[in-house]
C-alpha cells in the first residue's frame, strides 16, 4: 500500500512539474488561470494522498484549505477580474518559447542538485519530490521574469506559493496549522489588494502592460 501511494505521489509530483512547464509556455490569460486551478487541484489531491498514507490528519485540513482557496476562490476572483478588465481573450506575445523551455530544464536540474542532500535526510515518504517542489518554485520565478503583463505575473507569483506549499508537504508533512492558516490568509488578502491594484493601473495607464511602467530608473 505504502509503495502504491508512493508511486501515486510521484505521479502527481510529475504532473505538477508538467503543469509548471505548461504555464511557462501558455500565452492565453484564460488558459493560464485554468492551468493554475488545475495545479491547485493536483496539489490538493497529492496532499490528501500523503495525509492518507502517512496518517497525518492535519494534512487533510491543509488539503481542504488548498482546494477551497486555490481551486475555487482564487481562480474565481481571477476569472471575474479578467472579465471586468475585459482582457479575457488576451494573448501575450512571448519571445523565444524554446529558449525559455531550455532554461527551465536547466533550472530543474539545478533544483534537483540543490534538493538532493536535504531529501536524503528527510524521513517522509515524499522525500523524492522535494526536488520537484523546488523546480516548480524556480519555474514560476522564471515565468514571472518572462512575462510583461500584470495578470500573468501575479499568476506566476501564486504558482510560486503553490511550489512552496508542495515543498513544505514533501519535506516535513506540512507546516504547523496556525502558520498554514496565516499564509492562506495572506494569499487571499494579497489577491484582493491586487484586484484593486489592477483597476488602478488600468485607470492610469489604459492597459495592464508593464512596459509602461519602466520610468523609475537610476540614470
Amino acid at each position: 500500500m505504502a509503495n502504491f501511494s508512493g508511486q501515486l505521489i510521484n505521479l502527481f509530483a510529475a504532473l505538477l512539474l508538467l503543469i509548471a512547464f505548461a504555464m511557462l509556455s501558455q500565452r492565453r490569460v484564460l488558459s493560464l488561470i485554468n492551468l493554475f486551478a488545475l495545479q491547485g487541484l493536483v496539489l490538493s489531491v497529492s496532499t490528501m494522498i500523503v495525509a492518507n498514507s502517512s496518517s497525518q490528519h492535519h494534512l487533510y485540513y491543509s488539503a481542504g484549505l488548498t482546494l477551497i482557496l486555490k481551486v475555487i476562490i482564487l481562480p474565481w476572483i481571477l476569472h471575474r477580474l479578467i472579465r471586468k478588465l475585459n482582457i479575457k481573450w488576451d494573448v501575450e506575445t512571448l519571445f523565444n518559447i524554446p529558449t525559455t523551455m531550455l532554461v527551465g530544464i536547466a533550472l530543474v536540474v539545478f533544483a534537483f542538485n540543490l534538493a538532493a542532500p536535504i531529501s536524503q535526510m528527510a524521513g517522509t515518504i515524499t522525500k523524492g519530490t522535494l526536488g520537484i517542489a523546488m523546480a516548480s518554485v524556480l519555474l514560476s520565478f522564471l515565468m514571472m521574469i518572462t512575462r510583461s503583463k500584470a495578470v500573468p505575473q501575479v499568476i506566476g507569483f501564486l504558482a510560486m506559493e503553490n511550489g512552496l506549499f508542495f515543498a513544505a508537504t514533501s519535506a516535513t508533512y506540512g507546516m504547523p496549522m496556525v502558520v498554514e492558516l496565516g499564509i492562506a490568509l495572506d494569499v487571499l488578502v494579497g489577491m484582493f489588494i491586487l484586484g484593486i491594484f489592477f483597476f488602478q493601473i488600468r485607470e492610469t495607464f489604459d492597459s495592464l502592460d508593464l512596459k509602461h511602467m519602466e520610468k523609475l530608473k537610476e540614470d
Partner: peptide, 20 residues
C-alpha cells in the same frame, strides 16, 4: 500617479518574491 503605481508594483513584486 503613474510613478506611484509603478513604485507600488515594483515594491509588491520584489518584496513578494523576496519574502517567498
Amino acid at each position: 500617479t503613474p510613478a506611484s503605481l509603478e513604485a507600488a508594483w515594483k515594491y509588491f513584486i520584489l518584496c513578494g518574491v523576496g519574502i517567498a
